[in-house]
């Protein structure tokens, strides 16, 4: 009803099309109330560009698949409102930085997840299905460290924000190291020493500059910098024989 009586205000959207050697193409979509950046991308795909490639699944900030670079900064697009980012009536949407571009807004995240593994991020249990469930004291310091980083949704926003990842291909990045930190603090994990060794190896925690771009951009409000500082501390203590 409103659309008929009032003139629609249009939003100018520049979207990256193609792979690494692509270019921006500009579209116009109507500005709506409570519109997210993901809504805008969907509208472009439905009305203007059926071949537009992008990823999303949950649309409510749980799955971590919709991250893109919006006006130069990495964001989870399903929970980023247009009015938060488009003060000028224009938005630029590109794929996430630090990841190879496949097509349009979709990146190849293989390297991101491989680093997750290389940083020691795979859980190894010591109990079997016949054992009693472990009793973990939620108030213990270790569990609180783990809890502080556990809500990561693997969106790679922090990975795109990290300068050291941009400079050094070998660096595992904030998400993988944050994961390793939650594991070394998980008392059910049976390979703590190995995880710590992996997380402090060549691509590991020693590379972090502690400047906190990851913290600034993480949509969940996690603090990978603090997790990485924890790994540094723990690996140093281990090195001088004072590890736990």
């Amino acid at each position: 009803m409103q659309d008929m009586t009032e003139q629609e205000t249009m939003l100018e959207v520049a979207i990256w099309r193609g792979g690494a050697d692509g270019r921006f193409v500009t579209y116009e979509v109507p500005l709506r109330a409570n519109q997210t950046v993901l809504d805008v991308v969907t509208e472009v795909q439905r009305r203007h560009e059926p071949a537009l490639a992008y990823r999303f699944a949950c649309r409510v900030g749980v799955c971590g698949s919709c991250a893109m670079t919006v006006n130069g900064a990495p964001k989870w697009t399903c929970r980023t409102h247009v009015k938060q980012v488009a003060a000028t009536g224009k938005i630029t949407i590109e794929p996430l930085r630090n990841l190879p571009r496949i097509k349009d807004l979709a990146t190849d995240m293989t390297g991101f997840f491989e680093k997750w593994d290389r940083a020691g991020g795979r859980f190894r249990g010591s109990a079997t299905r016949h054992d009693e469930p472990a009793r973990v004291d939620p108030a213990s310091r270790q569990r609180q460290y783990a809890d502080a980083g556990i809500e990561c949704i693997n969106c790679a926003v922090c990975y795109a924000a990290c300068e050291v990842v941009a400079w050094d291909d070998a660096y595992y990045g904030p998400a993988a190291l944050n994961r390793a930190w939650t594991l070394v603090n998980d008392e059910r994990h049976a390979a703590t020493k190995q995880t710590l060794a992996d997380a402090s190896d060549r691509g590991g925690c020693g590379n972090c500059h502690s400047q906190g771009s990851c913290v600034r951009h993480c949509p969940i409000g996690l603090n990978p910098t603090r997790s990485i500082a924890g790994l540094k501390r723990m690996s140093l203590l281990q090195f001088v024989g004072m590890g736990r």
Binding site: S200, D201, R202, G206, K232, S235, L236, Q238, F239, V240
Partner: peptide
């Protein structure tokens, strides 16, 4: 090795 260098640099 990385941890060793890290420790040496700090010390």
């Amino acid at each position: 090795m990385e941890t060793g260098l890290y420790a040496l640099q700090r010390v």
